[in-house]
């Protein structure tokens, strides 16, 4: 019924249904069987078996616009995004990062150095050393200022996927949602709310380490709700785990400023990107322990149990608004291109 798209649109990069469809239609062709978790799993990264450990590999290109925004910049995102993708697979101690930069002719050196300083500081925060890199320059108009790709590698003894949910599991969000996307949106649309809205961009491998230490094998699924927001993450986790997910909307932590901006723009914070948060699925018996460990960490003070996995309605994400219930639609895309 739906015909294949012949031209790529911005929505194909927005983390929603359109992007997933494009990847499935075009790139899955590249997948081949591996000993571990490979491309076909469409997870945050790959996990390859090495002896009794797993080598986790992830890569991410960063094209955020504007490159400097309240709470961060493209440099901080480029490190956090990759460190966090490793952490979502259970690998919280990065062995090395790569840095490949594409620059547009005429890009100011001062901005480049500012971005370098930000990358250095963020890498230090995450305990992630840069080990190699690449630099390319393209003509004016062939790129927009600067694009950064980073790849990360790390070893772990236990891999956590985004497919491990079972009925009865509880879901924790590690803090307030929507901060990054709303900060970018506010800056781009000049909403005049900038003073209140700051991106949450941060490496959260330390926070995840604390959660894994507290929950052990009972931490069964993780996902960082970047593009597509918490809604996008939950849709993937529900589909892959073949469970329904019921969100208690009133338990979802949202800053007043983010809520107000969302009301103004008609955008649900559940659909908005985060760059320093995780959705963590935990067996119910350990949820209290994991929550306490998260809240004891500076980046997890607002953590909350906000949803649970159901045995019914597999693949569906249902929102209990406190006044009623409805399905939470999977984000389509195009909400905000070039968010990270």
């Amino acid at each position: 019924m739906e015909k294949l798209v012949q031209k790529i649109g911005l929505k194909h990069g927005s983390g929603g249904r359109a992007m997933r469809q494009l990847i499935e239609e075009v790139f899955l062709e590249l997948a081949s069987p591996v000993d571990g978790i490979g491309l076909s799993a469409l997870d945050d990264g790959a996990a390859l078996r090495i002896g009794d450990q797993w080598l986790v590999v992830t890569t991410d290109s960063h094209v955020v616009h504007p490159i400097f925004f309240p709470g961060g910049d493209i440099g901080r995102i480029s490190v956090s995004g990759t460190v966090n993708d490793l952490a979502m697979m259970g690998a919280t101690e990065p062995m090395g990062l790569t840095c490949a930069v594409i620059l547009e002719d005429g890009f100011p050196r001062a901005d480049l150095e500012r971005i370098r300083d930000s990358m250095k500081a963020t890498a230090l925060e995450a305990g992630a050393p840069f080990v190699t890199g690449d630099t390319k320059v393209v003509g004016r108009g062939d790129a927009d200022g600067i694009f950064i790709n980073t790849t990360g590698v790390a070893l772990t003894r236990r891999v956590v996927t985004d497919a491990g949910l079972r009925a009865g599991d509880l879901l924790i969000i590690t803090g307030t949602i929507g901060d990054h996307g709303m900060a970018i949106m506010s800056k781009r649309h000049d909403l005049g709310l900038q003073g209140d809205l700051r991106s949450d961009v941060a490496p959260i491998n330390g926070l995840i380490r604390a959660a894994l230490a507290a929950g052990g094998d009972d931490v069964v699924a993780m996902k960082d709700p970047t593009r597509g927001g918490v809604a996008g993450s939950l849709h993937e986790m529900a589909a892959k785990g073949k469970v329904g997910v019921l969100i208690d909307e009133q338990a979802v932590p949202v800053r007043d400023e983010v809520r107000a901006a969302g009301d103004m723009l008609g955008i649900d914070p559940l659909l908005v990107a985060n760059e320093g948060k995780a959705v963590i699925g935990v067996r119910a018996a350990s949820a209290g322990k994991v929550l306490a460990a998260l809240r004891a960490h500076p980046l997890g003070r607002d953590a909350a149990i906000f949803a649970r996995a159901l045995g019914e309605r597999p693949g569906a994400v249902i929102l209990d608004t406190g006044l009623g219930k409805r399905l939470l639609a999977e984000p389509e895309g195009e909400l905000l291109p070039r968010i990270c």
């Binding site: 009925a167 009865g168 329904g244 019921l246 649970r308 159901l310 045995g311 019914e312 309605r313 249902i318 929102l319 209990d320 219930k325 409805r326 399905l327 939470l328 639609a329």
Partner: peptide, 20 residues
């Protein structure tokens, strides 16, 4: 389309039906 249509969700997540 925005809000997921109008399926019947009256019983969803209630104790009797949730932990399948």
């Amino acid at each position: 389309h925005t809000y997921g249509g109008a399926p019947d969700l009256r019983g969803v997540g209630l104790p009797a039906s949730s932990e399948g």
